[in-house]
């Protein structure tokens, strides 16, 4: 079986700087990829290329054999790639339900969970009809994921979803991401610095440094990798 998402030698330059410098990997449906690396190593930029936020300087992203990169964010969503943001972005004066309605409208026929099921998955029960701006910051981060899931993605890109969450909230989030991957067969890429959150969640981990892939493997392999320890994880 061929992979759902294939990232092939993606390069993204801003001026003379290669923020992403030849990254390749593949991703299967229903799997969770953890993307780690020091600040400035190109994780968010790579996510941006996958989501159509940035056009790659060279290289391609293919989803199910079709090129999905370089066509703009809305086309990536329509193809089935959705993302969240490092800083919370919501339609502040809207209720979550109103935002979900918009997102459902852009789904292009793929299946997605109902509002209630999404709320249940993310622990947002009872908050669907509140203005998004009035939610707690943790709930806002979950609401952002709900919006992305409502577009019926086949690939979900989460940029530091657990930021600002306490241990219990992060664990609940990890459960929700795992359930989305398992039950909706969504491939998930998660960028995060919180290893306690990320390592138990990820099936595979990709370590980036200076725009390139430093290491790729299971969480156990990565934990034991000396190059990764030296450049990022540090001595335990």
């Amino acid at each position: 079986m061929s992979a759902l998402l294939t990232v092939d030698r993606v390069v993204k330059r801003f001026g003379g700087v290669a923020a992403v410098d030849g990254v390749s990997f593949t991703l299967d449906a229903g799997s969770v990829l953890g993307l780690i690396g020091p600040n400035g190593s190109g994780k968010t930029t790579l996510l941006g290329v996958l989501a159509g936020t940035h056009e790659p300087t060279s290289g391609t992203v293919t989803l199910d054999g079709k090129v999905a990169s370089g066509k703009g964010a809305h086309r990536a969503v329509h193809a089935g790639i959705a993302r969240t943001f490092q800083t919370t972005r919501l339609f502040g004066s809207w209720t979550l339900r109103e935002g979900l309605r918009l997102a459902h409208g852009e789904r292009r026929g793929r299946q997605a969970w109902s509002d209630d099921r999404l709320a249940d998955l993310l622990g947002l029960d009872g908050l669907l009809d509140q203005p998004c701006a009035s939610l707690t910051s943790a709930a806002q981060r979950l609401a952002m994921i709900a919006l992305a899931l409502a577009t019926g993605p086949r690939v979900l890109l989460l940029d530091e979803p657990a930021v600002g969450m306490d241990t219990a909230e992060a664990a609940a989030l990890a459960d929700a991401v795992r359930r989305a991957a398992d039950e909706l067969d969504v491939a998930v890429v998660v960028v995060d610095h919180n290893m306690q959150f990320l390592m138990p969640l990820a099936d595979t981990v990709l370590v980036m440094a200076a725009g390139a892939v430093l290491a790729e493997g299971t969480p156990e392999q990565i934990r034991a990798d000396e190059a990764v320890i030296a450049s990022y994880l540090g001595e335990a």
Partner: peptide, 14 residues
């Protein structure tokens, strides 16, 4: 949606 947050709107498929 564009009025509220154009970038988010675009990333939800608008």
């Amino acid at each position: 949606a564009i009025r509220e947050d154009e970038d988010l709107a675009q990333h939800l498929g608008v």
